[in-house]
Design a binder for these strands. Structure first.
Lengths: 145, 145
DNA sequence: GTAATAAAAGATAAAAATATCCTTAATTAA
DNA sequence: TTAATTAAGGATATTTTTATCTTTTATTAC
């Protein structure tokens, strides 16, 4: 559904929300290991998520690392997709038409439009915090082996 | 949702189903122009769809070209995804976990499993022919400008 | 200050997806 | 049989995605 980059981003954000706090920041090595993502590549992704204080926060130096504010935890999962530039994917025409609309639809349009809102809602209604809590409660996991 | 390659494949198959018959085969140039796909790249995709007589058929030489049998027209759209190796995408874990199941789910699993069958059904219930007829009836299009 | 730590930033590298071109094989018509 | 036509096949090129490595900057502790 999403690129590997975005999958790593989602897992990382959920992990940081689950394990980290401003008092207990998480290091890159810790995060990459926990979500089974390549370390250096994950660094780049975390930079994207940090840029402009959009989703996660970071501090350099000893005791530094990544964390996510209580406020940011309330953001919908979709906001992560948005930072990664993949929320547009949800809106895209199934056949890849540049102009696919009610007025000029592709042959999949009519049926796809019925479920598209459900897919979008999937990422809009769930917050980062909700997913992190799922993992904390032992109901689910983000490891990958 | 799908790769550009698969988007071209879907558009090409629908176009061939709509305009071509065994008596009136369609040439590569015609197809590529109609669906606004790069000509040579489309040739490779049509080869994939032709291989083993899976979806479309082809004949070389003058008067040759591509067409799709009446029987193949009845195939679900999903069969095209399958040939292009993208039907697995529909089954994949949203967070990219290798092992995401009821027993060991990711935090998106529970909500995603509610709509996944709808997405799959979208491509399983529609046949190539149904989409082609939509276009023939003027209800939709597969051009791209 | 200096040394140590950890993320940011930049430069490359490798792999996969997308795209083009040239040659070969099959088919038809003259 | 020769020429023309059209897809198949193979080689190569370009772009994007994924990944790694090195250097720089910020922060902390001493």
């Amino acid at each position: 559904m999403f690129s590997k980059t975005t999958e790593y981003a989602l897992r990382a954000v959920i992990y940081i929300a689950q394990k980290g706090t401003e008092e207990n920041k998480l290091g890159l090595a810790d995060i990459a290991k926990a979500i089974h993502s390549p370390r250096s590549f994950t660094a780049k992704i975390l930079q994207q998520l940090t840029a402009g204080g959009k989703i996660i926060s970071s501090v350099r130096g000893p005791g530094g690392g990544f964390y996510i504010s209580a406020k940011a935890k309330k953001l919908p999962v979709r906001s992560v997709l948005s930072v990664m530039g993949e929320d547009v994917k949800l809106e895209k025409c199934v056949l890849g038409l540049k102009h696919c609309s009610e007025e000029k639809p592709c042959p999949m349009h009519a049926s796809y439009k019925l479920i598209k809102p459900l897919i979008i809602d999937l990422f809009e209604s769930k917050t980062i915090e909700m997913l992190a809590n799922e993992v904390s409660a032992g109901k689910s996991n983000i490891g990958n082996l």
